[in-house]
Simulated assay, not measured.
Amino acid sequence: MTTFDDRERAFEAKFARDEDMAFRVTARRNRLLGQWAAARLNLTPEETDAYAKAVVQADFEEAGDEDVIRKLLGDLLAAGVEIDDASVRRALEEKSVEARRQLMGEA
């Protein structure tokens, strides 16, 4: 029974690590997306930091990425930046890869 218990604990620990890493990648990705959008909005460094934090917060509105995409697209279009949904989604994918690379480099 001990072997089974050890395996179960190991599986639970791996699951917890994987979930933690997924959360950290998503949060980093959203911060990078906020910085990407802030550059298109010509924000100051202080405004960029605040905006990146707002994008991270926007991800807690609902499950999935639609809340972040909606925020970015709405803010960019409201500011007169010519951009479409596909461009925002492409940036989301690119920043996801970049966030994962950054976090793997830290490990």
Rank of each mutant, 00 (worst) to 15 (best):
M1N: 12
T3C: 11
F4W: 15
F4M: 14
D6E: 14
R7G: 13
R7F: 14
E8D: 14
E8C: 15
A10P: 03
F11I: 11
F11V: 11
F11M: 13
E12S: 06
E12Y: 08
K14F: 06
K14R: 09
A16E: 07
D18Y: 13
E19T: 05
D20K: 09
D20A: 13
M21K: 06
M21I: 05
A22Q: 09
F23M: 15
R24Q: 04
V25D: 01
T26E: 10
T26R: 12
T26P: 05
A27Q: 01
A27I: 00
R28W: 08
R28M: 10
R29K: 03
N30F: 04
N30I: 03
R31I: 09
R31Y: 10
L32T: 01
L33M: 12
G34D: 04
Q35M: 12
Q35P: 10
Q35S: 13
W36P: 04
A37C: 07
A38H: 10
A39R: 05
R40S: 11
L41I: 03
N42T: 13
N42F: 14
P45H: 09
P45G: 10
P45V: 07
E46Y: 13
T48P: 05
A50V: 11
A50G: 09
Y51L: 04
A52C: 05
K53H: 15
A54Q: 11
V55F: 07
V55S: 08
Q57T: 14
Q57M: 14
Q57K: 14
Q57S: 15
A58I: 05
D59L: 08
F60C: 07
E62Q: 08
E62K: 10
E62C: 05
E62Y: 05
A63E: 15
D65R: 11
E66Q: 07
E66C: 03
E66Y: 06
V68A: 00
V68D: 00
I69N: 01
I69R: 03
I69C: 03
I69G: 01
R70P: 09
K71D: 06
K71W: 08
L72V: 02
L72G: 02
L72D: 01
L73C: 02
G74D: 02
D75W: 06
L76P: 02
L76I: 02
L77E: 13
A78E: 11
A78C: 09
A78R: 12
A79R: 10
A79W: 10
G80Q: 03
G80T: 00
G80E: 00
G80D: 01
G80M: 00
V81M: 05
E82K: 12
D84M: 01
D84I: 01
D84R: 00
D85G: 04
D85W: 05
D85Y: 10
D85A: 07
A86H: 11
S87I: 01
V88M: 00
V88R: 01
R89E: 00
R89S: 00
R89Q: 00
A91P: 01
A91L: 02
L92I: 01
L92A: 06
E93I: 04
E93K: 08
E93F: 07
K95W: 09
K95E: 09
S96V: 03
V97P: 08
V97D: 09
V97G: 08
E98F: 07
A99Y: 02
A99I: 02
R101S: 12
R101E: 12
Q102L: 14
Q102W: 10
L103F: 04
G105E: 05
G105Y: 04
A107Y: 11
A107K: 12
A107R: 15
A107C: 13
